[in-house]
Design a protein around this nucleic acid. Structure first.
Length: 169
DNA sequence: TACTCGATTAACT
DNA sequence: GTTAATCGAGTAG
């Protein structure tokens, strides 16, 4: 993923995500119907759903499915690829492994806040790209989602095995 | 209009 | 290991 921001370009490889499945997933914000916050999930796939959590961090999601299935994928960790210096400025650390390790940290490092809620993940300032040509398919582990109280045993967290940038093992 | 608490993190002991 | 920070969406009254 990349963010073309006024401050500069930052790029990271997605190494950890969580799925939120929509109305029938009790941990999903859309489970109790549309609200002002989750409105983007009730639209088409491929748009950013950004919300404030714990009053101080942003979580970045990409909507999936169509308007009939209000689902999204949460980005939990990135491997920094470009713009590392800018990420460090935004995060106040130079330790590369800590820059994008966790949903709140990656949003901060990438300069993503609620002003980007509802923007396109294809055309917008924040964009997602397919794997590089010839890149080997990673070994992906499925595990329970972190920080949710509902549906604790649904294995909807996915991360690249042994990747040092994932938030937890 | 008021109250509760979260898809977290950093800074403590 | 524990807890404070910090705020607005969601819900109840």
């Amino acid at each position: 993923m990349a963010h073309f921001s006024p401050e500069g370009l930052t790029v990271g490889k997605v190494v950890e995500t969580e799925a939120y499945l929509g109305r029938h997933d009790p941990a999903c914000h859309s489970a109790r119907g549309p609200t002002a916050r989750n409105a983007v999930m009730f639209g088409p796939a491929g748009f950013l759903y950004v919300y404030l959590i714990y009053g101080m961090y942003y979580c970045v999601n990409v909507t999936t499915d169509g308007a009939e299935v209000p689902a999204a994928v949460l980005l939990r960790a990135l491997e920094p690829v470009a713009g590392v210096e800018l990420m460090g400025q935004r995060r106040g650390t130079s330790h590369i492994r800590q820059l994008c390790r966790g949903p709140g940290r990656l949003a901060r490092a990438m300069g993503i806040d609620r002003s980007l809620n509802g923007t396109s993940a294809v055309d917008g300032p924040v964009r997602f790209y397919p794997p590089l040509p010839g890149e080997a398919r990673p070994d992906i582990v499925a595990a329970p989602r972190i920080g949710v109280r509902e549906a604790v045993d649904w294995p909807l967290r996915f991360y690249i095995r042994d990747n040092p940038f994932v938030s937890r093992r």
